[in-house]
């Protein structure tokens, strides 16, 4: 089996490596990928179309908004799938399950450590504030809904690691994080439906300027991007915490790492 695998891998890799000479040079500004009209349009017209300096955010949340919406749905479905998979056949009584192989009792009982507790109490508010900054400032600096959402989810994961899963789940129980995840997708699609109702294409934010008379179409695009990034952040943060909480406790949401 190892030899079959090795031959298959070497054959594929050899074919790819032999094709590498036909590739444009690394850093070539006029390679087909970099000189394509689509990429050049994004670089040149972003500031005119929406006034957002960070092109990555503009392409993510405006030009390729449809794509991003369904990426968010994929993350949501993955989170729901993890909860479903881990709970299949969990109706077995507790004593009949195989005992965990590597669970020293001291790990679970040692959540009162003063250094870890104090560090986390100081660190978690800063992390959450930084997450909101990353979400809100994604137009002008690296960041946006995905990154800010993951940082926000990480702050809950840190609380779960430091203080145990149960205190973290008291703050963010399962009914609540599932609701938050769905609310994020609903926020995102609500922007698209609002555009539809105002007579434009789905997720074509320019038309939303009629709702706020003081802004023009470019500003409407900029503000709508912030709105959909908030939706993305809701879903991603809730699902990241859901993934950790379920995987660390085998879907039972008690005990944990």
């Amino acid at each position: 089996m190892k030899w079959v695998g090795l031959i298959a891998v070497l054959f594929t890799g050899g074919l790819l490596l032999s094709a590498m000479d036909d590739f444009p040079n690394w850093g070539d500004a006029h390679s087909p990928a970099n000189a394509s009209p689509v990429s050049q349009y994004f670089i040149e017209k972003t500031i005119e179309d929406s006034g957002v300096p960070n092109m990555v955010t503009a392409v993510l949340a405006d030009y390729r908004s449809y794509d991003t919406m369904f990426e968010t749905v994929v993350v949501l479905i993955a989170g729901i799938a993890i909860m479903a998979i881990l709970r299949v056949g969990n109706q077995i009584p507790r004593g009949a399950r195989p005992a965990p192989v590597s669970a020293p009792a001291s790990v679970n009982d040692d959540h009162q450590d003063i250094i870890i507790g104090t560090t986390c109490r100081l660190l978690i508010p800063v992390l959450q504030l930084f997450a909101f900054y990353v979400i809100a400032h994604g137009h002008h600096s690296p960041g946006g809904g995905f990154q800010g959402g993951v940082v926000l989810g990480t702050s809950f994961i840190l609380a779960a690691i430091a203080k145990g899963l149960d205190p973290a789940l008291e703050r963010l129980p399962e009914t609540r994080y599932v609701k938050i995840a769905f609310v994020g997708v609903v926020i995102y699609s609500a922007f698209g439906v609002a555009c539809l109702l105002l007579g434009e294409n789905f997720l074509d934010y320019g038309v939303l300027s009629v709702l706020l008379p003081t802004i023009d179409a470019a500003e409407a695009r900029s503000h709508s991007m912030l709105g959909v990034e908030v939706g993305v952040a809701f879903t991603v943060s809730a699902i990241m915490f859901a993934i950790y909480a379920n995987l660390a406790s085998k879907g039972e949401l008690e005990g944990g790492l």
Binding site: V38, V56, A78, A81, I82, F146
Partner: peptide, 25 residues
């Protein structure tokens, strides 16, 4: 070029979600 960055940014997040599903299995 911002276009590959956008495509790969979402791919990373979806990648960790699918890794989570695989670990659950």
């Amino acid at each position: 070029n911002p276009l590959p960055h956008v495509l790969m940014l979402t791919a990373i997040v979806v990648g960790v979600a699918t890794l989570g599903v695989a670990l659950a299995v």
